[in-house]
Design a protein around this nucleic acid. Sequence first.
DNA 1: TGTGTGTTGTGACTTCTTTCACAAAAAGGT
DNA 2: ACCTTTTTGTGAAAGAAGTCACAACACACA
Lengths: 210, 210
Amino acid sequence: MAASGKTIERLSVYRRLLSMRTFSEEDYVYSHELARMVSGTAAQVRRDLMAIGVTGHSKRGYRIGPLVEEIGTLLDDPEGTRIVLVGAGDLGRAVLGFMKGRSSALTIVGAFDSDPAKAGRVVHGYRCRSMDEIEGVIAAERAQVAILATPADGAQEVCDRLVEAGVRGIVNFAPAPLIVPEAVWVERVDIATALEKVACLIRGVDETTM
Amino acid sequence: MAASGKTIERLSVYRRLLSMRTFSEEDYVYSHELARMVSGTAAQVRRDLMAIGVTGHSKRGYRIGPLVEEIGTLLDDPEGTRIVLVGAGDLGRAVLGFMKGRSSALTIVGAFDSDPAKAGRVVHGYRCRSMDEIEGVIAAERAQVAILATPADGAQEVCDRLVEAGVRGIVNFAPAPLIVPEAVWVERVDIATALEKVACLIRGVDETTM
DNA sequence: TGTGTGTTGTGACTTCTTTCACAAAAAGGT
DNA sequence: ACCTTTTTGTGAAAGAAGTCACAACACACA
């Protein structure tokens, strides 16, 4: 029942893609169909599903219902995951838009911005609050995860406050490295790097490598 | 001179971090300093720098100026990389904000949205245009890269148009898989997956794994 | 000049991830 | 009942990425 980070990412994608289309109780999906959806190989899909103990059916594939459910038991905290968002700029708003009307496993329990002018404003249905309140909200809601969508300067300072307040995972959109205790997981989402990588790879800099 | 995708990502980060602080002609940086900045190991940094042929100096480290420059010759196209952005929602605006006032190696040459109401509007200094114009702009500007910041539905259709028009790399923010010819590079940036991954990993689901 | 300290460059090793390839299973036709 | 086809499950091999450990080097200071 060991699932590596890479496997977790792909499982998340499988589930999303399967959930997008409607399926009935008796629908099946083949490993090669999932593979095509994520531009991977069938063997890799089977390995991923093996990692969560899902077992398929020769000649018919995997039953979609139980598969989606099993991915859920791995990915979703049965208590729910409560998330605070810091930074209500364009990026923060984009994330709020993404979250709106999604499944209940992930819940935004507060949106914050250091700009007092933004406090009280409502974005995508979430009321933006002052940074003063953040420790209180994290404690009261028992938020485990934070989304850091601030500019680079000040990111570390905000991060320290989040960690101090009890957050154990951070999705970091700020183009800055974060220094955190070992017990805290940081997942970096780096837009500038993604762009530079694509710009670099489409030139024949190294055709053989991913 | 082989640089893997992972190495390219880290090089991009090293450069950004080094460029942020001012440095003089004779400033040096140690591998372990860079390592701390990206939460990696010194050996890994040295390997990365070895991959681009940068050589350091026992006891003093790496000269920052030449290092930044050498990373540039790997990452930056000397002709510049011209980029179109599709989707002027929150996310598209966030990306435009990021790009504004950055180095000249990457240039946004057009922003587009399928919503005719957005056409003509100016976002972060970029005028949003109608999708009708996109093929023309890509051809006229010889844009090589596209940023796809649309909702999931319709992403594939837009992608097909981009590829047909000559784009060779895509940064895909849409939570949908894209099917492209082999010659086109897609870099997926998946916000929902990043969140689910963090939410999963902070639970002790698999303490030993990244 | 010599000794001590701290850093690079890299071969060897370890660990993680993906792919290969094939036996076993199951469905369908005859 | 048997043969054909297609798919799963997985051991084994290959490949990629990261870490270790140490010789070689360079500076500092006596």
